[in-house]
Simulated assay, not measured.
Amino acid sequence: MANPTRWATDTGPEHSQWYIDRFRKLAAEGEDLAGEARLVDALVAPGSRILDAGSGTGRVGAALAERGHTVVGVDADPALVDAARADYPGPTWLVADLAELDLPALGEAEPFDAAVLAGNVLAFVAVGTEPQVLRRVAAHLRPDGVLAVGFGTERGYPLTAFDADAVAAGLRVEHRFATWDLRPWRDDAAFAVTVLRRPAD
């Protein structure tokens, strides 16, 4: 990894295990952890190939796999990937830095119909690598593929910069919502969910 992620630099050594335990507890309590997956599922055809970028403990990718999609999840934190492999053995879970993402080199050469960056992923990549992350994820989409991205609007990555970086990555902004359950966008929203597309031509 060329630059350590903010997930590594801005949290303590116990943070990953806390995060794993937190989501295992929420799942055991029956909490709804599939909201992002429901939106992505609605954007694609049945049986699509989906990249869960910044997959964490695997909850989004696992929910998409349960809906019949082929899922590859990628995260920079080996502890989170190990937890995903243990808890959700169906999808493929890989350790990789999104800013340097090269899935063909890891044996996943086929492009994806869709990708998702959920859970404030862009707030935890290495400082200044957000444009690279968008470029690398976009490069793994097939033409006309979609990318759904969600992050807090007060996390230090202005939406104006995000939109410009998305366009520079060859993506087109199609929709923006205030939540993963499609509540209308408003300028004072604390969270932004953006649907982007890699144009077919």
Rank of each mutant, 00 (worst) to 15 (best):
L33I: 09
V116H: 05
Y88W: 09
A148N: 06
L147D: 04
A109S: 14
A83R: 04
L147H: 04
V137I: 11
A63S: 10
A115N: 07
A96E: 10
L134R: 11
G119W: 06
G58V: 09
P131L: 13
V60S: 00
P46D: 02
G54D: 06
V125F: 05
A37N: 05
L80N: 03
V149T: 08
V40I: 15
P104G: 09
T92Y: 00
A148P: 08
L94Q: 07
T153S: 13
V127A: 14
G68C: 05
D144A: 14
A42V: 10
G56T: 12
E36H: 10
A37Q: 06
E36P: 09
R136Q: 15
V146W: 03
S48R: 05
V81A: 03
L43K: 00
A65S: 05
A164H: 12
T92R: 10
R67E: 01
G58C: 11
D113V: 05
P78W: 00
F151N: 05
V60L: 04
P89G: 08
G73A: 02
L134D: 08
G107M: 10
P104W: 08
G73L: 02
V72D: 03
A84K: 07
V125D: 05
L33V: 06
G107L: 08
L101P: 05
F162V: 15
S55A: 15
A76P: 00
E154Y: 11
R142E: 13
E108R: 09
D41S: 13
P158I: 12
V127Q: 12
D163N: 11
V149G: 09
E66R: 08
A45L: 04
G90I: 00
A99T: 07
T153N: 14
E130Q: 14
P89R: 01
D52I: 01
L159F: 09
Q132W: 12
G145A: 01
A166S: 11
R38L: 14
